[in-house]
């Protein structure tokens, strides 16, 4: 089975997954190669860092150029089965990521799998390391926006996430920043 995402082509085999960043023909070659290589290397590093920190992610088997080979996780997409309890668990996991300076960069229910042993974060394609409040606020902002875009009970899901996230040492600073970001996206004449 091959899944063609916007960013990468993911080949799902029996026991492993091969993720290759696709060439984007709309970008000039030099910029395209730069972006793909940089993101592949960063993604592999972050997947293993997150795992060591206690967030469930696939085991990395191999990294070359624009390709990562990793463990196959079997589960249901969070987007198809999200509820308040699961959204709370997302918050708990993101608190761990942020405690470890990992910014997810694309925190949506399409990038998380639900398995018998809990949540698996399977896509760190846009992740990076940063210890500033700003990008942490961005992670939450992106997650809340994707909830708003897809689920009518987005307010409850947001509150549940925040409950889970409240264990993070810089919780109140990040939440204040999210509110600022929500303001900032607005049109200023």
């Amino acid at each position: 089975m091959v899944i063609r995402g916007a960013e990468a082509e993911v080949e799902v085999l029996e026991d492993r997954v091969i993720k290759r960043r696709r060439e984007k023909k709309y970008r000039i070659k030099v910029l395209d190669e730069m972006i793909r290589k940089k993101r592949t290397r960063m993604e592999a590093r972050i997947i293993s860092q997150a795992r060591r920190a206690g967030v469930a992610t696939p085991i990395i088997y191999d990294v070359t150029g624009d390709t990562i080979v990793m463990e196959r996780i079997r589960g249901e997409l969070l987007r198809n089965c999200i509820n308040e309890e699961l959204s709370r668990a997302v918050g708990e996991n993101v608190a761990i990521l942020h405690e470890n300076r990992i910014i997810h960069g694309d925190l949506t229910p399409k990038n998380i799998l639900v398995t018998d042993s809990g949540l698996y974060f399977i896509d760190f394609g846009l992740a990076f390391f940063d210890e500033r409040i700003e990008p942490m606020g961005m992670d939450l902002h992106v997650y809340f926006e994707s909830l708003k875009a897809d689920f009518d009970n987005h307010i409850e899901l947001r509150l549940a996430f925040l409950e889970g996230y409240s264990g993070f040492s810089r919780y109140s600073q990040v939440v204040r920043r999210v509110e600022e970001i929500e303001e900032r996206g607005r049109y200023r004449a």
Binding site: L107, T108, D139, H141, V142
Partner: peptide, 13 residues
């Protein structure tokens, strides 16, 4: 000639 400039995409923003 392409000169590298900050490419800033954060999630959907």
């Amino acid at each position: 000639r392409y000169h590298s400039l900050p490419y800033s995409v954060k999630g959907m923003d």
